[in-house]
Computed example of a mutant assay.
Amino acid sequence: MGLFSRKRPDQSQQASDASRPTIDKAQRDPAARQLITAMERRDWASARGFLQSVRDPDDHAFYISVCADVDGVQDWIGEWVAAEPQSTLPLLVQGAHGVFWAWEARGSARAEATQREQFDLFFKRLRFAENCLDEVADRDQYDTTARAFLLTSGVGRQVDLEEQQRRFQDVVKRHPTHKWAHGAMQQYLCRKWFGSHEQMFAFARQTSGYAPPGSQLHGGLVEAHIEMWLDLPSGEDVEYMKRPEVGAEIRAAAQRSIWHPSYQPRPGWPKLHNSFAFAFWQCGDMQAAIDQFKLIGYTYITDHPWHYMGGGDPVDYYLNAYGGGR
């Protein structure tokens, strides 16, 4: 197949079942793996002990998202909320999980391919999630995580731009470089949601302009180019990514983030490197792509952005790119 094709890779290029890598929701983060195990066992005491020790706002949002993405949390989280009514933590986990649970009901298809019943359940779960998150924000003036998740739910609730910007400012006035908040705001501004390519790129470039050297926020430029690639018809997408100015901006983003001497991987770092690997590969910048593939290997594969390649398994698409890049 062509290097940039969105078709499913040939079976001959896939790893055997015995050696086949998998996507780890914990992204090979030991603490995240322990959190997932605790949540699966309904051991909220262990989850609480760790989450209360996390001080960095970006790390906190990552670990809350790990808890929120565990299947079945909705079946028992109410017990934790009832057991500790003075604490906002169980309510935060309940609200964040509600956001994930809502998107699970909606599915990943575009609006025109989503059933009315799915939308009804989606909005019902989002309203519940926002009630929880709003209560956390009301009770904890220093909170950033609930406020950041309200940006994600805002996309689903189809709030207007003024409201979404209010939610964004509510986070960044507490933590100016909040990674989750910036990612959610940029998604809102994508053409596939409620913005335009121009708004998306303006936000990504403005963010990169004030983000400090080594910040993951510079990766927003890479995500913007990936979103542009995704929105273009087959053929035009390949031509777009091979434009010299596109590759130059992606390399400049790498210089300011993952290639900068002050860059330090934080919890959840594999997603950023997978995005850079994908973008370099699509641009034909093979040495830069190979460097990222070597770092990711078969261990740190993430669903994003490989799931954008089509309806197949993201691991297959990654392996095809990884094999073609060596």
Rank of each mutant, 00 (worst) to 15 (best):
G95K: 06
A113T: 03
A202Q: 09
W281M: 10
R147D: 04
Q74G: 10
A277L: 08
H175F: 08
W269P: 01
Y317I: 09
P213A: 10
E112T: 05
R139N: 02
F128V: 11
Y210P: 08
N131Y: 03
F62T: 00
S16R: 09
Q216S: 15
A204W: 02
V222P: 09
Q158W: 00
Q158S: 10
G78D: 08
W76R: 13
P233L: 05
R110A: 06
H175T: 11
T88K: 06
Y317W: 06
R20S: 09
A148V: 05
F100S: 14
A68V: 05
V171L: 07
R127E: 12
R157C: 10
W269L: 08
Q27H: 09
V155C: 08
R41G: 13
P244F: 04
I226Y: 02
L89K: 01
P21N: 01
D24F: 00
S65Q: 10
R127Y: 09
A204E: 05
R116V: 05
E40D: 02
H218N: 11
R243M: 11
A254Q: 14
Q292K: 14
K192F: 12
L272F: 07
Q74W: 10
K192W: 11
A26V: 05
G325M: 08
R256T: 03
D120T: 12
T299R: 07
D160F: 00
R243L: 12
F122L: 11
G195W: 05
A109G: 04
H218S: 10
Q86S: 13
A184M: 13
P176V: 01
T302F: 02
I301W: 02
R33V: 03
A15N: 08
W269M: 05
E112Y: 01
W229V: 03
S65E: 05
Y317N: 10
F280H: 11
Y308N: 04
L217H: 07
L35K: 12
T37N: 08
P21Q: 04
Q199T: 11
R48Y: 03
E236P: 01
P85W: 01
L319A: 09
V246D: 06
H273A: 09
K179F: 14
D138F: 06
P265F: 00
L189D: 01
W259N: 14
A96D: 01
S262R: 15
Q52R: 15
W80Y: 12
D24V: 00
Q94H: 09
S275K: 03
Y298I: 07
Y263S: 06
P314G: 02
T37I: 08
Y210R: 13
Y300I: 05
I301L: 11
N131V: 10
V222D: 07
N320Y: 13
Q199R: 15
I250K: 02
V155M: 07
H178W: 00
W44K: 06
R8V: 14
R205I: 02
Y210V: 13
W80M: 12
W76S: 13
H260W: 03
Q14N: 02
T88Q: 15
A18L: 15
V159W: 01
A15M: 14
N131G: 12
A102K: 08
G156W: 00
V238I: 11
D291P: 05
V81D: 14
A137G: 01
